[in-house]
Nucleic acid binder design. Structure first.
Length: 578
DNA sequence: GCCGTTTTCGGCCCGACTGTTTTCAGTCG
């Protein structure tokens, strides 16, 4: 298992502890390094094989942090972190999860009351001791009591699949307010990151106070509410709303969508041409003595629409999913941005389950659901037996052939093209868990890893991709968001093998997976691999989840032509060689 | 601690909100 996340957690803790002891600038450096390590597609332990210089390939990682990374990989500890822990023996990660408590407050509470963890904190608040500390009052004490249960429960980012439906519901309400001119998501939610820290919403209105008032009446518990922003807790998620003037809608949307790194590149590009970018617009400050004199100095050249923001900087409009500082600005300047695949361009689904294995519906019901969803074709790919299948879920070889017959029968009653198929298991040695003679009888063979999902999986997946009967590599890394990181893979090699063998690489749209992830998709697209966006649905309502796969593909710069199931049924049949 | 097509030293985003201040620090995004 890649240790990137573990390393990043240690560095984030370093940042908190340095901040608690009032060290300047270093905390930010550690946090940026941690973010980049967490998101890096290559395992740190692989980079560390080349020593400090290998680890330094990660952006914002220099000599000092690279050495600490190697120290951690070698010894399981970082000496400087251990010293900081001794200096402040506080579970700082837990305590700072309480809303309003940061590293410095945690340090203050330790100094004054010896508070080391959430239990200490709760006991002190209940005993009324917090408000006796200088700088703290009864309100803060109550806020701690109100926030402590939430802090105990939530220590992970939320799945996009949970946050997006909530956002859609709240957006629907916001847009019905008379005083609201426009409303949208912002932040990582709008970029369709697989997990989000909170739900960011933005509204345009010339009466922000009324919007905040009406919004805080909608639902949930108020965390804070001012004249232009409010925070709620709804269904266990934090929701942040900002309200901006209508003429600043585009600039605010651009600013609050981020990512931070993207915005830094945008801002620097603007500075080069005498423009200043902020959440209020783009301003020509070439003839201004002090561009930092205020928020809106100089003459305003853009801000009402997001498109105007990019265009006034000589850039094509950059879709939110691309705004990660992964080369999108250069591409936008050169007119080379991809025409991303859109929701609605999928014409079928090639990875679906019925009650023959662990799905909930019959073949006929699944076909009817796909037809109602507007699809032109589908593949019935129930689980085969084999490693990773527990409780008798999988279908054995003889029954697979019988199931295929059932599927062919059902297909006669529909206009949809229905492909027979299977989801076979990839063994630890790369073998496929169904007999070749049986696979040869089936139209669409998805092969997926279901067991032994840690360590380097490249050889194993390459072997499966090279199998002549395999058409689609299902959820390639086997990751489950917030639960397991899945297989490490050499994406370049895997994608090259997929191209050579006419095997599609799946983007599994299930919000718990989103596998392949966006940056792997980008590598696969650059190499020319064919993708398949599948829901892996086990019930008809899950067909709706396809949009999460589409946006993950967009995060990987994929165009419709890169995706197998944007083709018509004949095109897919050609690819499947049936 | 990191970084550099104006710098290997001298910068590092910044505004809203809160709670506690009698003018501001800490947190958050």
């Amino acid at each position: 298992m890649s240790r990137n996340a573990a390393v990043a957690d240690r560095l984030d803790e370093m940042a908190d502890r340095l901040e608690a002891t009032d060290v300047a600038y270093k905390p930010r450096a550690y946090r940026q390094a941690a973010d980049n390590i967490r998101g890096h597609t290559v395992a740190v332990e692989t980079l560390a094989e080349d020593g400090v210089d290998g680890v330094k390939q990660i952006d914002r990682v220099g000599d000092a942090i690279a050495q600490k990374v190697i120290e951690y990989l070698d010894t399981g500890r970082i000496e400087e972190l251990e010293e900081l822990r001794e200096e402040l023996p506080v579970d700082i990660e837990a305590i700072t999860r309480v809303a309003g408590i940061g590293p410095k407050t945690a340090a203050d509470l330790y100094e004054a009351l010896g508070i080391e963890d959430l239990d200490d904190l709760e006991a002190a608040a209940e005993a009324g001791e917090i408000q006796t500390v200088k700088g703290f009052g009864a309100t803060t004490e109550q806020n701690i009591l109100d926030g402590i249960d939430f802090a105990r429960e939530s220590h992970q980012r939320e799945l996009l699949g949970d946050a997006r439906p909530l956002a859609d519901r709240l957006l629907g309400s916001l847009r019905e307010f008379d005083v609201v001119d426009a409303a949208d998501t912002a932040g990582s939610l709008r970029r369709w990151r697989p997990t989000v820290g909170d739900v960011d919403l933005l509204a345009a209105s010339d009466d922000s106070e009324t919007v905040v008032e009406q919004f805080t009446d909608l639902d949930g518990e108020i965390i804070e509410a001012g004249t232009s922003k409010a925070s709620l807790r709804v269904d266990g998620l934090r929701v942040d709303l900002r309200v901006v003037a209508t003429e600043e809608w585009g600039s605010a949307l651009q600013y609050f969508t981020g990512s931070r790194d993207h915005n830094i590149v945008v801002r620097n590009r603007a500075l080069d041409t005498g423009l200043k970018v902020n959440e209020y617009g783009i301003f020509d400050v070439a003839d201004v003595d002090d561009p930092d004199a205020g928020q809106c100095v100089g003459s305003r050249v853009a801000g009402e629409t997001e498109r105007s923001m990019y265009e006034s900087l000589g850039l094509d409009h950059v879709p939110p999913e691309l705004r990660e500082d992964h080369g999108e600005i250069d591409a936008a300047a050169a007119g080379d941005l991809p025409t991303l695949i859109e929701e609605g361009e999928l014409r079928g689904d090639l990875h679906l389950h019925t009650d023959a294995s662990d799905g909930q519906n019959s073949v006929a019901e699944l076909i009817a659901a796909a037809e109602a969803f507007g699809y032109e074709y589908l593949a019935v790919t129930d689980h085969a037996t084999g490693s990773g299948m527990v409780g008798g879920v999988g279908v054995d070889d003889d029954d697979l052939l019988a199931l295929a017959e059932t599927v062919r029968d059902a297909a006669r009653d529909t206009d949809l093209r229905v492909f027979t198929g299977v989801e076979a298991n990839i063994g630890e040695d790369g073998s496929v868990s169904v007999d070749d003679d049986v696979l040869a009888e089936l139209d669409c063979v998805v092969a997926s890893p279901h067991a032994a999902l840690d360590g380097d999986g490249t050889e194993r997946l390459v072997a499966a991709v090279e199998h002549p009967e395999v058409n689609v590599l299902g959820h390639p890394t086997g990751r489950l968001l917030n639960r397991r990181s899945g297989l490490d893979i050499d994406m370049e090699r895997l994608a090259e093998t997929a191209v050579a063998n006419d095997t599609a690489l799946e983007i599994n749209a299930n919000p718990s997976r989103l596998d392949l992830r966006g940056d792997y998709v980008k590598q696969a697209v650059e190499i020319g691999a064919t993708l398949a966006i599948d829901t892996d649905a086990h019930q008809p309502s899950s067909l709706d989840l396809a949009r999460f796969g589409v946006h993950t593909a967009r995060r990987g710069w994929a165009e419709a032509d890169d995706v197998l199931n944007t083709r018509d049924a004949d095109g897919v049949a050609d690819f499947l060689d049936v």
